[in-house]
């Protein structure tokens, strides 16, 4: 592994200061970063260790929101009592991601910042606009099956955003909180990740002199049922071919509110607002769910090896909506 300078940050301000204006990277769980530094895909001259920052709490916040520190580990978040009760879709998504060893280290902030799994990005030699802007995209005419998108792609990049956690957060609704040395700002979770467009090397809205301090989840939708369905080549420790986070709230058999977000098919965590709008006020039947799935995948672009993802994602959506609606019905039937 290449040499780099190591700085252990004692507080947020110190971390931002050490990071800004350098060829540097924040080191949290390291499960993406150390992997990519070993491959020499990421080439930081300085690592700023943020593991000791006081950002590891999960607490209730204003208006029923939940504030999750950037350094909360994926395992901790998945088993948190409030998350399991009020945001079970997030807990399910986290526990279907990676392996137990990786989840024990991976952090909330780091998960948001994880890099793509495209084999051409990772091989260090193939043309890749993400790794070397302007060099071209090897995946478009190459082998583009498992970790390649059908939504949000451009002629410059088709790599999928690999996170499961982010898909659940996109469905729930969330805000990313960023701190610089002298100010703070909040970004809607859906705006944080960028589409590749003609600048696939710019993946997110985080500036050089900022650090993710925490993420707040919107207040849970009252009485809703939710689920995360992940379809993959093997049933554990594998990236999604297609996944769906669904949240459904009912009034009787009418859908009061629905949320749908997709993984494994989009170049960023993919929220399907048009499909959700079509569900609002509709009856909670397979027919409605199939129509929503149809809308969600409109405009999808198939590539040589991943066209199967379009019908697969539709099936994931229908199944997830059906299961989420069933859970909403069951919880409505329970004595409160």
């Amino acid at each position: 592994m290449r040499q780099f300078e190591y700085k252990r940050a004692e507080n947020t301000r110190g971390a931002v200061h050490a990071h800004a204006g350098q060829a540097s990277a924040y080191l949290a769980g390291g499960t993406t970063l150390i992997d990519l530094v070993k491959l020499d895909i990421m080439q930081p001259e300085r690592l700023v260790d943020v593991n000791r920052l006081d950002l590891a709490d999960i607490e209730h916040s204003d208006g029923g929101t939940l504030k999750i520190g950037a350094m909360v580990r994926n395992t901790t978040l998945a088993y948190d009592q409030t998350v399991q009760t009020d945001y079970s879709v997030l807990s399910e998504a986290l526990l279907q991601g990676a392996s137990r060893q990786l989840r024990n280290r991976a952090t909330t902030g780091g998960n948001v910042m994880q890099r793509v799994r495209c084999s051409y990005f990772r091989d260090g030699v193939s043309p890749c606009n993400k790794r070397e802007p302007g060099s071209g995209c090897s995946a478009i005419d190459g082998h583009n099956r498992e970790v390649f998108a059908v939504l949000g792609t451009s002629e410059h990049c088709i790599a999928v955003h690999p996170s499961d956690m982010c898909v659940a957060m996109a469905a729930i609704g969330a805000t990313v909180h960023l701190a610089s040395a002298d100010s703070e700002r909040a970004v809607d979770f859906l705006d944080f990740h960028r589409l590749p467009g003609d600048t696939p090397h710019i993946e997110h809205d985080l500036k050089d002199d900022e650090l993710i301090t925490h993420i707040t989840l919107d207040a849970p939708i009252k009485g809703a049922g939710s689920t995360y369905i992940k379809l993959r080549d093997r049933s554990s420790y594998q990236f999604a071919l297609a996944s769906c986070a669904a949240i459904v709230a009912l009034d009787g058999d009418t859908i009061r509110e629905a949320r749908i977000a997709l993984g494994g098919v989009g170049t960023k965590p993919w929220r399907c607002k048009q499909a959700e709008a079509a569900l609002q006020g509709a009856s909670a039947t397979d027919e409605s769910f199939k129509q929503a799935a149809q809308i969600a995948m409109e405009g999808a672009t198939p590539y040589k090896h991943n066209a199967f993802k379009i019908p697969l994602a539709r099936k994931a959506i229908v199944r997830a909506l059906r299961d989420a609606a069933e859970r909403a019905r069951r919880s409505a039937g329970e004595p409160t």
Binding site: Y6, G30, I34, D35, K38, L47, Q101, N104
Partner: peptide, 27 residues
């Protein structure tokens, strides 16, 4: 594998299983 994919390097850190190949010693 040396990249967190195989688990042969698993050790316990403060009681939790982690991939020691992806953890800097200094951390």
């Amino acid at each position: 594998c040396d990249h967190g994919q195989c688990g042969a390097c698993t050790v316990l850190v403060n009681g939790e299983a982690i991939n020691s190949c992806l953890a800097l010693a200094v951390v």
